[in-house]
Design a protein around this nucleic acid. Structure first.
Lengths: 339, 339
DNA sequence: TCGTCATCGTGTTACGTATAACCTACTGGC
DNA sequence: GCCAGTAGGTTATACGTAACACGATGACGA
């Protein structure tokens, strides 16, 4: 038997029919097959190293117990943690999760379903993976969106993090330290999750008289962030909050790392002259110096809830859950405003 | 037709047999089907939005044109780039690549093949994914190893980066700057790729009289690295190369970031008092300050070559390639030795 | 007129699994 | 003695695709 053993091989070796093997190994034998035979089948299967042929099973069942997780970029540690959470929850229900990293920028839109190399029961997608979202909507697969606009009615379910609250906590933290002149270093990636940050910050500052806010944006890499921050901290903007800003609020830890470099390059210090905040609490946040004050997002929980939502939808149930809570982690990159 | 259209549906709509549809869409029709009919079939398929059922195709063919890429951790940007390279090369040959992130540390060894959710033609695995390697060897799938010990005869093919040369370049760079007392901050992850670094550094320094080398190791995160580096730079070691070291050679950029923090925490400066080098040239290397002198590895090339090797093996050909070259990127974290 | 050959297809099968439908003792009850 | 019921299986089938092994038709040379 040079070939991989099939259920028929197991059946022959055990002296039963293929159907019996299928019943026993599928755990549907209670009351239909004797304890003795079931044991024999299991032993034989183990002995032969039988592994069911997934393609055949999928063909037969139509369902695959497989979900696709669409992430904007593989590099982003946040989504690595989302995957971990989703895979864990999936495993508890006999599901698998395969990853599709959406090509960054405007790459050649590969086919996410062809590259998944498996039939899919559903999709969990980050709203940042805009590249790929169109292709998904072209199918009738149930779609769970992560951090997406609640007004957008497309997905079957939605799992959101309370981003707005995170930004409010950042604002409160900085206001409490006496800061009044802010720069918002925003992500240039168009996504709801970043729009929310901008809106929440703007509104939080509007509550406090005498504050000013200027916004610049940059793609999600440290160099671009540094340049954008330098620009914001030097060019004399008319509407205040520019060169003399004391707080730099960033959409993301990577941007914050770039911002810190900009500050120092301009001869000022973090946090003595300018306070900087990040978002996400990536490993990077504690790798740079000073360590970043940032907002920790429950990435694993996002994955878990996303998978739970998908399972619910596949089960015909509906899924509603409150936004997941976040928490501000104060570290060394923020301090009392100067003067 | 509420269902997804099958090749039979296309056949019926086009007024031909299913076999013809299969021939045309499989691009095997030349000389067997008229140009006119082929065009008709293709148009009909497009119109109906026909997508071949992968499970059925895989079942029929036995081969899946799918490779599994086993990476040690999803977070590691290096492997994200390896994936990109591998996926690109695969796409050129009608192959797909699915990812399996080996559980970090000693997690519950999930089954990489079950979680791949598809039958596989072969596996490309990093030698760092020790967790998962055992399970792979249990199968008879062709295995391509990345950065593995050339004396280990297991895999069908091997793709290595000239790590040793990278470390020699680091040593030459630092020796050229006048450094003589070294600390090697090594990765605690057991893997050939790290052993090579240690050996190459040791041998490069042995060439130069009057040098000293001390080695400490840490897991791949910034905090652990900082602690290990602090230990090495304070505790009075008998054999020299300890507290008064002027060069800190790190196995990895993440370790280097931690090392920089250790140096500053001890009241010394990078690079004025202590030079620090990394490895890999991750985004982190330019996100921290000072930017890290490091060794750039051709990650995408590793993926491409890995896939090329697998394709060759599947094709019955053998694959031999020289180690991929690396290059030292001098940045701000290294400078002339003090005094 | 007939055989040969190329052109353009089609019928059929198998891949390995899950499951509905059926079959065959055997046991008990009356 | 016979029927009902149940335990313990088996047989047969379909899922959607690829590809092998056959036609059928017509043109053409001898």
């Amino acid at each position: 038997m040079a070939h991989r053993p099939t259920s028929r091989d197991v059946a022959q070796a055990a002296g039963v029919s293929q159907a019996t093997v299928s019943l026993v190994l599928g755990d549907k034998w209670r009351g239909r097959v004797s304890e003795r035979t079931a044991g024999l089948v299991r032993d034989t299967a183990r002995e032969l190293g039988y592994r069911p042929n997934l393609a055949a099973r999928h063909l037969r069942l139509g369902r695959t117990r497989t979900a696709l997780l669409v992430v904007p970029a593989l590099t982003n540690e946040f989504f690595a943690r989302v995957y971990t959470g989703a895979a864990g929850m999936a495993a508890e229900h006999g599901f698998g999760v395969v990853l599709y990293p959406s090509p960054e920028g405007v790459g050649p839109a590969r086919d996410p379903f062809a590259s998944a190399r498996a039939a899919l029961d559903g999709v969990i997608a980050s709203s940042m993976a805009a590249q790929t979202l169109g292709a998904i909507r072209g199918t009738d697969l149930p779609l769970v969106m992560l951090d997406s606009d609640p007004d957008d009615p497309v997905p079957a379910a939605r799992v959101n993090v309370d981003i707005a609250d995170g930004m409010r906590q950042v604002a409160a933290h900085l206001l409490g330290l006496g800061h009044r002149r802010f720069v918002h270093l925003a992500s240039a990636v168009p996504s709801w999750t970043f729009e929310v940050r901008a809106r929440a910050l703007r509104e939080a500052l509007r509550q406090v008289p005498g504050t000013s806010l200027r916004t610049v944006s940059a793609p999600l890499n440290a160099d671009a962030a540094r340049e954008a921050a330098e620009r914001a901290l030097t060019s004399p903007e008319t509407s205040g909050g520019g060169p003399d800003a004391t707080a730099l609020v960033c959409d993301d830890d990577i941007l914050a790392a770039g911002a810190c470099k900009a500050v120092r390059r301009l001869g000022r210090r973090v946090p003595d002259d300018v306070s900087v905040t990040g978002f996400d609490d990536l490993a990077l946040a504690t790798a740079v110096e000073p360590e970043l004050t940032t907002v920790r997002l429950p990435a694993e929980r996002v994955g878990e809830q996303g998978m739970a939502a998908l399972l619910a939808v596949l089960d015909g149930r509906s899924f509603e859950a409150p936004d997941l809570p976040v928490s501000l982690i104060p570290r060394a990159s923020t301090a009392r405003a100067p003067r």
